[in-house]
Amino acid sequence: MTSPSAADRPAPSSAPLTAVVTGASSGIGRATAARLVADGWRVLAIARREERLAALAEETGCEVLAVDVTSDDSVADLAARVEELFGGTLNAVVHVAGGALGVEPAAEADLEKWQGMYETNVLGAVRVTRALLPAVRRSGRGDLLFLTSVAGHEAYPGGSGYNAAKAGEHMLASALRLELNGEPIRVIEIAPGMVRTEEFSLVRLGDQGKADAVYDGVENPLTAEDCADVLSYALNAPHHVNLDLVTVRPLAQAAAHRVARHQGL
């Protein structure tokens, strides 16, 4: 997918568009921050790991800030930094921070893992939205983009905790779209299927061998850059065009639990 041509985009203003990208220390968040900088956006990339953010800043020239989206104080610091960097206006908040923990069935649920997933995927997104929505409103051309998952739309065995968290984030986006109707703010949801990144399955499963096995025999699972391409298209489309919900999967995946696997791959 390619971004809209220059002829299809709104006439450029004197200043570049601005974005905050959460979860930018790795995977889709990192790829998205880099892609938006390449598209000409001014980007503030946030995550918890300062050393990874420093490497991203050196590579792309984006601004960075260490932020924990589960902390009110940390997100307040983010709002202050947006005020300082962008004059209190902001065009886009790109919610990528999240993730899955464990694959236990609901009958054996580890409630600390469930709480961790809800804190990051749902409450973290709410907290950042609440803090930055005033700046998005002031921009006159705003976007709230939520990277959810097919797991928020399709249940699968061993996914109940992540299913519940991502379904919650999906409903947050859906409610915001109704609540902000009539304002110049798009609410966009991108729901990827199987994406192979360096950390998602490793963090979820806690073992590199198990993480690698998730992708065994799968021809061309999505990459972080594939997802960043879709996010870039959604954010750069003419502002009257809203991609309410986009599901993006590798060709090998027909559903969250249905993946074609071939020996020797």
Rank of each mutant, 00 (worst) to 15 (best):
E119T: 10
R204P: 05
S14M: 10
N91I: 00
I185L: 07
L172G: 06
A57K: 09
I188T: 11
A224N: 10
L243F: 10
L176C: 03
R141E: 15
G217Q: 02
P238H: 03
A237Y: 00
N181F: 07
P134Q: 03
R52N: 09
A100I: 01
T148A: 14
E189S: 12
P157N: 15
Q253I: 00
N163W: 02
V75H: 05
R249K: 15
T120C: 02
R48T: 08
T223C: 01
A106F: 15
V96W: 05
A24G: 08
R52V: 07
R258S: 14
A151H: 14
G206W: 01
N91D: 05
H170R: 15
E199N: 12
T197Y: 04
L44V: 02
V259S: 07
A7Q: 14
E104S: 13
G99C: 00
V64R: 13
L202F: 06
V43R: 08
D77Y: 00
H262A: 07
A11Y: 07
G152K: 14
G193Y: 11
V82W: 01
E119R: 14
M194W: 06
L231T: 10
L85A: 13
H239S: 09
F200Y: 09
L36A: 07
A76C: 04
F86Q: 12
Q115D: 15
R261F: 14
H239V: 04
V241T: 11
R49M: 00
E83S: 14
L172N: 04
V195Y: 02
R9Y: 01
D72W: 05
E51K: 03
Q208V: 14
L202V: 13
Y118T: 15
G209N: 13
V43T: 02
M171R: 12
P192G: 05
D229E: 06
A66G: 13
S160M: 09
R127F: 06
V103A: 08
M117D: 00
L222D: 14
A15D: 05
R249G: 12
S174W: 11
A11G: 09
A252D: 01
S201F: 12
V246S: 12
V128H: 12
L78N: 11
R138N: 03
V126W: 10
M1N: 07
A254N: 13
E112Q: 14
A175N: 11
W114D: 15
I188A: 00
M194G: 09
G264F: 07
I188M: 02
L172S: 09
V214R: 03
E83I: 01
E169A: 05
